[in-house]
Simulated assay, not measured.
Amino acid sequence: MATRKRLLILGSTGSIGTQALDVCERSDELELVGLSAERSWEGLVEQAGRHGVRRIALAEEHAAARASEAWTDGQVLGGPEGLVRLVVESEADLVLNALVGSAGLGPTVASLGEGMDLALANKEALVVGGELVTALAEATGAQIVPVDSEHTALHQLLAGQPPGAVERLTITASGGPFRGRSREELQDVTVKQALAHPTWAMGGKITIDSATLMNKGLEVMEAHHLFGTPYERIDVVVHPQSLVHGLVQMADGAMLAHLGPPDMRIAISYALHGGESVGLPVVPLDLTAVGTLTFEAVDLDAFPCLRLAREAAREGGTAPCVLNAANEIAVHAFLEGSLRFLEIPSVIEQTLSQLGSEPVRAFESLYEADREARRVAGEAVAALA
């Protein structure tokens, strides 16, 4: 029997993490060696017991302390340093980073620095880290495999294509819960309405990013870094059915499309099994039942976050890091009820305008830009409250 792949899952209690555990339970090729969460210590301890894991980490120190008191069957590490230590000492062959937000950058750097292959669901690590992250992977020989439906689709479509064969990439967007609404119709939308995604069941932050279309801006940056495609050759199109996950336009004018059910286990399994398709309990598409596939342009007036993300991407330097930090602060404020929906892009734009972009020479430049952007965005939120 072939040696099983040692897998570490960061963010195992979230949507991606729980689905990854479902994939693991069905595979005899994967051996779990560690799990982590931000603060959900009870769920993490339950997962560790169920899967025979003896080492876990919680990013929130108080939660780690609670877990240490309640769980005596293994070791509990705490804080951001504990998370990095879990990675470095795990001897994992593959790390699935399903953490939320820029908190995923440190463990991404630790994984790649150790030469561990990275299944990346935390797109913010590439948005913030950019060329520094991809250069680190190249230096250590570690592979980065995307874990989301759009980039998994593009990864499969691009496999084996010779240089010069692909002209453009297209990322699809469901349009979120507010597709078709004008800017005026978005003035008074509620948190409950914004969290009611029509297709995907996700965590709060990514669901709001989907509603504002900021997630597509982050995905454009991720595609740029993953596939080396210039920004001007990456398109975003609204596709309400969420069945076409990505498209590539070939040099001869032909287009290749990746279709599949909207089930994240497909993308997760693809990444965890080294880019191979293995059996899953997923019902295939019945195209006759689907009937119609439709596509629409993005309304940038109603959803300016995509425009802001593209502008930050073209600016480069610390601008994507500032954009991401400001977005995290604004989304958190919206979820707490202290910011209106259309004020999310306002806070981001104000923060970008105030801080601009600085050259990135090392990871410390990014950590400093992140801290400063959070301070400025927090002040902008307070001014609007």
Rank of each mutant, 00 (worst) to 15 (best):
A137S: 14
A48H: 09
L118N: 02
A20Q: 07
L112P: 01
V109W: 09
L306N: 09
T229N: 06
L58G: 01
H273K: 05
R183H: 15
T292F: 13
G82M: 08
I144L: 03
S90E: 04
L226M: 06
R4Y: 04
S174L: 11
V236Y: 00
E372H: 03
S365F: 06
D235L: 05
G14K: 04
Q249T: 15
A297I: 01
S242K: 13
A382K: 04
H225V: 05
I329R: 07
R6Q: 10
H151K: 11
M221C: 10
E114F: 00
S12N: 07
G49T: 09
A313M: 02
V191N: 03
A103F: 10
H245D: 05
S102Q: 14
T288S: 11
W71H: 07
T108A: 02
V283H: 11
A70Q: 15
W71K: 06
S68Y: 08
T351Y: 15
P345E: 06
A257F: 01
A110G: 03
T318I: 04
V189C: 09
G217S: 08
E315H: 01
R340Y: 10
L272D: 14
E184Y: 13
Q193R: 12
G141N: 06
R361A: 13
L99G: 00
S27I: 04
T3N: 04
W200F: 10
R181E: 09
I344C: 10
A142S: 13
G203Q: 11
G275Q: 02
E150T: 04
T13F: 08
R54E: 14
A289C: 02
A159T: 00
S269N: 15
A267L: 14
A65E: 15
A211G: 01
V236W: 02
P146Y: 05
L293F: 12
A382V: 11
G274T: 05
N327Q: 06
G141F: 12
S277F: 13
L169Q: 07
E222R: 14
V237L: 15
V381E: 10
V145W: 05
A325T: 11
V166H: 12
G34A: 02
A20F: 09
H332I: 10
L226Y: 01
D22P: 00
G49W: 09
S36W: 00
F341T: 03
A153R: 08
I171A: 09
E42R: 06
G101L: 00
E42K: 06
D286V: 14
Q75R: 12
S210L: 13
L157R: 03
R361M: 05
L259E: 03
M202R: 13
T190A: 10
